[in-house]
Design a binder for these strands. Structure first.
Lengths: 203, 203
DNA sequence: CAGAGATGATGACATTGTCAACATTTGAGT
DNA sequence: ACTCAAATGTTGACAATGTCATCATCTCTG
């Protein structure tokens, strides 16, 4: 009866929406542990209630499913960063983004590890663009704090700081430090000086 | 004839030194690609010229072999950092350590990914200690540049910066930037201000 | 030189990603 | 309404992997 007029017509056939169901199942699996290796094509198919080969009608191979899951992860990350960026004080907003970044990683360890590490970015331009969106959210905020010709390096510095912190925290390499990763993120970003305005002064 | 008097007597039986041979084979495999998933117990055994089950006489399971390889990686990293720290100017020495860190990651992508990401640190206290050695090399250098009560946070800031940079570079997320990761490392560390002495001033 | 312990090999099993072939459902065009 | 091709899902199979149980062989000690 109702024909899906959009180009997104790969829905409602036998299963209903296997494409989506597989992504949901995969996310479920990732939420149950910290190891993305636990994410198995067959397990996702099992949870979706289909055979082991059914996913291949919707994803070229396992990596394609992984890329799809990573895409969802990047979208969620972008949403979290945007929400955290709402503080009227631009410096606090930047701080908030950093805290949100490591918090996201800590709340979704397996997904975060999948987003980076796995899922080669050049493999899918679409995924590459989606992940770049998060970068732009950060860059825009940094642009409100430093001179235009320094936005690039300051953005990269903020990014590497929170990303490195998130990764080290996930790997359990900060256990000697009593503070939570989120607390550490805030402290390190303040150390950067950008929040206190030091980054604004020309050297 | 010559008995190995030390506790390290698990050598020279049938194979000669399978323990070592497996580690070497594993490192070989890692040097051939960027994906640690290519490192297979059976492949390592194959290269060492033994059956698939032989490794189990020397390593409890695959993870134990991985931990052994990671241990070697951390030792090499510590050596690289120490060598890079030899510059008489303490600021340049710190800079050198940072560059050496991302260079090591770029030169040994699969090994670096294995060292972090895989190989849970709490699993083996021995591995945890070895990896901590690199941290101490960095912390000692930072200690020569900032006041004692700030060594901890400055060390962490430097570490997260280079680690985040290394990880993002390995994941191909810096391809939009024309500069090499090593160049970026130097620039970011200079941005930190610690190299120029800004980090020494009390806020 | 004999036996015990260390080391290695074989065979098997469950699991995984993926291929080929087959079956079923859906929608478009008559 | 009916047919047919395309879309979707299933079955069976294969090679590879980590690991278990068992058996074979080597080396050192008494």
């Amino acid at each position: 009866m109702m024909t899906l007029s959009t180009f997104e017509s790969k829905k409602n056939y036998h299963h209903g929406d296997l494409h989506e169901a597989l992504l949901v199942a995969a996310l479920e699996i990732l939420e149950e542990g910290v190891d993305p290796k636990a994410l198995t094509l067959r397990e996702a198919a099992r949870r979706a209630g289909v055979s082991a080969m059914a996913p291949y009608r919707h994803f070229a191979d396992k990596d394609a499913l992984l890329a799809g899951v990573a895409m969802i992860g990047f979208k969620r990350l972008a949403i979290a960063l945007t929400a955290a960026d709402s503080n009227p004080d631009p410096r606090e907003a930047l701080l908030g983004q950093g805290v949100a970044y490591v918090t996201f990683a800590g709340d979704n360890p397996a997904l975060f590890r999948l987003m980076f590490g796995h899922a080669s970015p050049d493999r899918s331009p679409e995924l590459s663009e989606t992940s770049f969106a998060s970068y732009k959210i950060l860059a825009n905020r940094v642009a409100s704090l430093v001179s235009p010709d320094r936005v690039g390096e300051w953005t990269l510095l903020c990014w590497t700081t929170v990303h490195g912190l998130a990764m080290l925290a996930l790997d359990g390499r900060l256990t000697r430090n009593p503070d939570s990763p989120a607390v550490l993120a805030e402290r390190l970003l303040r150390l950067l000086g950008i929040v206190t305005g030091a980054g604004l002064t020309p050297s």
